[in-house]
Design a binder for these strands. Structure first.
Length: 485
RNA sequence: GGCGGCGUACCCAAGUGGCUAAGGGGGAGGUCUGCAAAACCUUUAUGCAGCGGUUCAAAUCCGCUCGCCGCCUCCA
């Protein structure tokens, strides 16, 4: 399989350090606020990578950290009149709630910065000993000029950056680009004892210390949002490679941004939507599907229309899924081939390869989803031919299995059509009950038997206005939550 | 200013040298249906921002132009 590496700017054949084993580290969140959909994208994208690598048979160790101490957390604690650790705890809990609903599994190891103060201090000490860092009034800074490769990930050199000069003037630094490894704490701020006095870790050092502890000096994949390339990941490389003298990471993987009105969604612009608020209007699977329907490195424009389109697509999937299971429940004592069965047979023969090929090419979930919908169309056409018998059951079963398998790798399409329907109902028409709908369908059926089309259509219209569409089929009348418009 | 990315139909979106340019939504026509809905079929890009170039062959490589965006400051 091939993975795009930010370091080289190319897709590269993926070769893990240890055959059969993948070690990956993804930068998690700073826990000072609710997650927005940008965090959801990163979480889902790397969740899919991890799932797919496992699906391919790799033994994956996935580490994702929580930054649970920094200025933003301290500020939030002041605002809310609680301590920093309560803030962290509160938003870690909120994070888990959001991730749970989005189908994002927990990482194998979820280290917190404050749980690794000793490792961090050792790391900083080592950098000072090796001459890459210096202490200044209780702060410790990494000296970027000492690290020859500084800028290799983000493709910039120190002189250019200094010329741009939107950097802090800080008298304590030898070079304005030097960054803090350790920060002396002010009076009343959270502090840990260190050789340089009471203080707390800088932002970047935790990832170097924790990834090394849990994954070793050199590991396979390091990921995060594209906005972490500089300075965060650049600084991690400097720290880690200066400390160990070894290559830090083999594949750097970064997801693209979510935009609103073509502008990056971000905290500072204030144009963000939290996962929590989107979940009031859409099912979590809609968010997940939406984020996977575009390649992970491309920007995605976020809007209600886009989510609605995703909702329609998912509904199409579950409609076919229901159709398949209904079909399998039918009487198949009579053997009848469908004239279009060759199309389905051919596609089934290729489907798993096509799906894997898409995912193998830098996790092309958009293409993979396209293949799923191609299969949906072909099997619908097949079922339209009203086949029956052993062969038909076999083909339908196989189709269902493949759809389940592909959906499983992406962690979408894993519910029953009934569960999907109930989920939609609780969002779109929570005041209705299935009992009520069934009663009205019964009333309408009575009218239909009397060929009282006016009465029958009135009931159908009434239900549609309340968000339910009816479908008359041979076996009886079915209903669905209306989603378009 | 430095560095990077993007521009594919009415909309979203795959495709990065060679089979008829995936898939979804929308539109139009049709099959099915009491009428619908769903599903299916046909149709909707001789063309991939524009202009040049390389090549037997380009949406795909190179150059220029136009437009949009990102990073260079906390940020997924």
């Amino acid at each position: 399989m091939r993975i795009y590496n930010t370091m080289t700017g190319k897709k590269e054949e993926f070769v893990p350090v240890t055959p059969g084993q993948v070690r990956m580290y993804v930068c998690g969140i700073t826990v000072y606020d609710h997650c927005h959909i940008g965090h959801a994208r990163s979480a889902i994208v790397f969740d899919v990578m991890r799932r797919y690598l496992k699906y391919k048979g790799f033994n994956v160790t996935y580490v994702k950290n929580f930054t649970d101490i920094d200025d933003k957390i301290i500020n939030r604690a002041k605002q809310e009149g609680i301590t920093w650790d309560v803030v962290a705890e509160k938003y870690i809990e909120a994070y888990y709630r959001d991730m749970d609903s989005l189908g994002v599994a927990g990482a194998d190891i979820e280290p917190r910065a404050t749980g690794h103060i000793r490792e961090i201090i050792d790391f900083v000490k080592g950098l000072i000993d090796k001459g890459y860092a210096y202490e200044m009034q209780g702060d410790v800074y990494f000296e970027v000029e000492k690290f020859a490769d500084y800028g290799k990930l983000s493709k910039r050199d120190l002189d250019d950056m200094l010329a741009g000069a939107r950097v802090d003037v800080n008298e304590k630094k030898r070079n304005p680009m030097d960054f803090a490894l350790w920060k002396a704490s002010k009076e009343g701020e959270p502090a840990w004892e260190s050789p340089w006095g009471p203080g707390r870790p800088g932002w970047h050092i935790e990832c170097s210390a924790m990834s090394r502890k849990h994954l070793g000096d050199t590991f396979d994949i390091h990921g995060g949002g594209a906005d972490l390339i500089f300075p965060h990941h650049e600084n991690e490389i400097a720290q880690s490679e200066a400390y160990t003298g070894r290559p830090f990471v083999n594949y750097w993987v970064h997801n693209g941004f979510i935009t609103v009105d073509r502008e990056k969604m971000s905290k500072s612009l204030g144009n963000f939507f939290t996962i929590k608020e989107i979940l009031n209007k859409f099912d979590a699977e809609v968010i997940r599907f939406f984020l996977l329907s575009t390649h992970y490195r491309s920007p995605i424009e976020f809007s209600d229309e886009q989510l609605r389109e995703s909702e329609v697509s998912i509904d199409r999937f579950y409609t076919t899924s229901a159709r398949l299971s209904d079909f399998l429940k039918q009487d198949h004592s009579r053997e009848k081939a469908c004239p279009d069965e060759k199309l389905l047979i051919d596609l089934l023969a290729k489907f798993r390869d096509k799906f894997a090929e898409a995912m193998d090419d830098d996790f092309n979930t958009a293409l993979a989803i396209g293949h799923i919908f191609e299969l949906i169309r072909v099997v619908n056409k097949y079922l339209d031919g009203k086949p029956s018998g052993r062969k038909a059951v076999e083909l339908a079963t196989k189709t269902g299995d493949f759809l389940k398998e592909a959906g499983g790798a992406l962690n979408v399409f894993r519910r029953t059509p009934e569960e999907w329907s109930r989920a939609l109902m609780s969002i779109k028409c929570p005041e209705l009950t299935e009992e009520f709908i069934m009663t009205r369908i019964g009333d309408r059926q009575a009218a239909r038997e009397k060929k009282d089309w006016a009465a029958s259509d009135a009931i159908r219209k009434e239900l549609e206005e309340r968000g339910i569409v009816l479908e008359d089929k041979k076996e009886g009348t079915g209903w669905k939550v209306k989603i378009s418009g």
